[in-house]
Amino acid sequence: MAKKKTVQDSIHIGISAADRQAIAQGLSQLLADSYSLFLMTHNFHWNVTGPQFNSLHTMFEMQYTELFTAVDEIAERIRALGHAAPGSFKQFAALASFEIPDGGLSAEAMIQQLVLGQEAVVRTARAVFPIAEPANDQPTLDLLTRRMDLHEKNAWMLRALLA
């Protein structure tokens, strides 16, 4: 007996199944990088010390709060394309383009790691453009543009702290 087709089996949004799969895979990597950056930033918020404690503690909180919202938006876009979003530490570790450092870092080392993490997210987002653009996936392109703009700005601001 053949399986009955459902609405879920036939997503018809003007993007081919193959393109939706490729875009979802790229967004899954972006989700993994974003969640990893969220986790690292939150950890640094908890553990930063030194003369810049208050300003860094506040800055890190602003950044991880924004990332918390962003991971939801990225995961929901993956779902809208008809694919499951990764959601475990094991999946994120396998997909992420960088590793979260262990504890014991100075405030300056934390800032350096966050610059690297912000830039990694930008590169991952930028890598999805050549997949989403020819598929005319405007919602994904908009999401990617907003993510890159924010992470480039965050990297610049963090880097300015190191000057």
Rank of each mutant, 00 (worst) to 15 (best):
M1L: 14
M1V: 14
A2L: 14
K3N: 13
K4I: 12
K4V: 12
V7Y: 14
D9K: 12
S10A: 14
S10R: 14
I11L: 15
I11R: 14
I11Y: 12
H12K: 15
H12S: 15
G14A: 13
I15G: 04
S16M: 13
A17D: 15
A17W: 12
D19A: 13
D19H: 07
R20L: 10
A22K: 15
A22T: 13
A22H: 03
I23K: 09
I23R: 10
A24C: 09
A24M: 06
Q25N: 13
G26W: 13
L27T: 06
L27F: 14
S28L: 03
S28C: 08
L30Y: 09
L31N: 03
L31H: 09
S34I: 04
F38P: 03
H42T: 00
H42G: 01
H45Q: 12
W46K: 07
W46A: 05
N47F: 14
N47Q: 10
V48Y: 04
V48W: 07
T49W: 04
T49S: 12
T49K: 14
G50N: 02
Q52K: 11
Q52R: 13
F53C: 06
N54Q: 12
S55V: 13
L56A: 12
L56V: 11
H57C: 07
T58G: 09
F60D: 01
E61T: 02
Q63N: 07
Q63G: 00
Y64S: 00
E66C: 00
T69G: 15
E73L: 10
E73S: 11
E73C: 01
I74S: 04
A75W: 01
R77G: 08
R79F: 00
R79N: 05
R79K: 10
A80M: 13
G82E: 08
H83G: 00
G87R: 10
G87M: 08
S88A: 02
S88M: 06
Q91F: 01
Q91M: 06
Q91L: 07
F92R: 10
A93S: 10
A93Q: 11
A93K: 10
A94M: 02
A94D: 14
L95E: 04
L95S: 05
A96F: 01
A96D: 01
A96K: 06
S97N: 14
I100S: 02
G103N: 14
G103L: 08
G104F: 07
L105P: 05
L105M: 10
E108I: 09
I111K: 11
L114K: 05
L114G: 10
G117A: 07
E119R: 13
T124G: 03
T124R: 10
T124C: 11
A125N: 01
V128S: 03
A132P: 12
A132I: 04
P134M: 02
P134C: 05
Q138Y: 08
P139K: 07
L141V: 04
D142A: 05
T145K: 00
R146G: 09
M148F: 09
L150Y: 06
L150Q: 11
H151N: 08
E152V: 03
N154L: 11
A155H: 06
A155V: 09
W156I: 03
M157R: 05
M157T: 01
R159L: 03
R159T: 07
A160H: 09
L162P: 02
